[in-house]
């Protein structure tokens, strides 16, 4: 955290938009293919991503490293703030505190979620084609499902409210009217993106994903 904090804070803010906000949107759309096209639709969407050129580089430079910096520096920022909701229970102060709370929840959730999915592919326990059935196993476990709902809502809130704050911090929405309209826009985005994730999470509970899961168990058993 040495050096000029202005630059690290600006980098933190920029990385939140490019690439992380773009990533969360693409993730929501990819997942929604499970709700729209079932197991095959989801498999195709996963295959499309993995068919991208230099996908490992994109993953490292476009997701992992920015996520790590944004997450770790974000924890430091959360630690630095004294939340004073008791004294000032205004809407924007709520958003300020929730941004920090949702950031910490998202940090933990993303670690766990990556361990359950991408890491398992990385170490060779499952293949990309098995991700649908892995998600079925997670989503049909009521405890995991509840944690996923909390994690997803926190992540999407952090994204939507973070976009609002980004527009202020870079001087794009200056006046109170611009900031108010921006908050309405991002509230709608929050609802839509949460809806996309929820739809996919619910469809992962479907039997068609479970069948694939049973087939996986069968293969493993052999």
């Amino acid at each position: 955290m040495k050096g000029n904090s202005y630059y690290s804070r600006k980098l933190h803010s920029l990385l939140g938009v490019i690439p992380l906000s773009l990533f969360i949107l693409s993730h929501a759309l990819t997942n929604f293919s499970a709700a729209e096209g079932g197991p095959q639709g989801f498999k195709d969407a996963v295959a499309f991503i993995n068919g991208l050129p230099i996908v490992s580089v994109l993953e490292l430079v476009g997701i992992f490293l920015p996520l790590l910096f944004h997450g770790v520096y974000g924890l430091y920022l959360a630690y630095q703030s004294n939340n004073n909701l008791g004294q000032f229970s205004y809407g924007r102060n709520w958003a300020f505190t929730l941004q920090r709370v949702s950031g910490v929840i998202t940090f933990i959730f993303v670690f766990w979620h990556v361990y359950q999915t991408r890491f398992q592919v990385f170490v060779g326990n499952i293949s990309h084609d098995d991700l649908g059935s892995t998600m079925n196993e997670i989503a049909t476990n009521p405890f995991f499902f509840a944690l996923y709902v909390i994690g997803v809502v926190a992540a999407v809130f952090h994204f939507a409210n973070g976009m609002w704050a980004f527009l202020v911090s870079w001087g794009i929405t200056v006046g109170p009217r611009a900031q108010r309209i921006s908050s309405y826009v991002w509230m709608v985005v929050f609802v839509i993106v949460t809806g996309l994730f929820m739809a996919s999470l619910i469809s992962f509970r479907g039997d068609e994903f479970q069948e694939a899961s049973a087939a996986l168990e069968l293969i493993r058993g052999v």
């Binding site: 804070r9 004073n84 924007r92 505190t97 202020v168």
Partner: peptide, 13 residues
């Protein structure tokens, strides 16, 4: 610089 405008967290209190 350090301690400058980047410290604002938009709580708007």
């Amino acid at each position: 610089e350090d301690g400058g405008i980047e410290g604002c967290g938009n709580s708007q209190n």
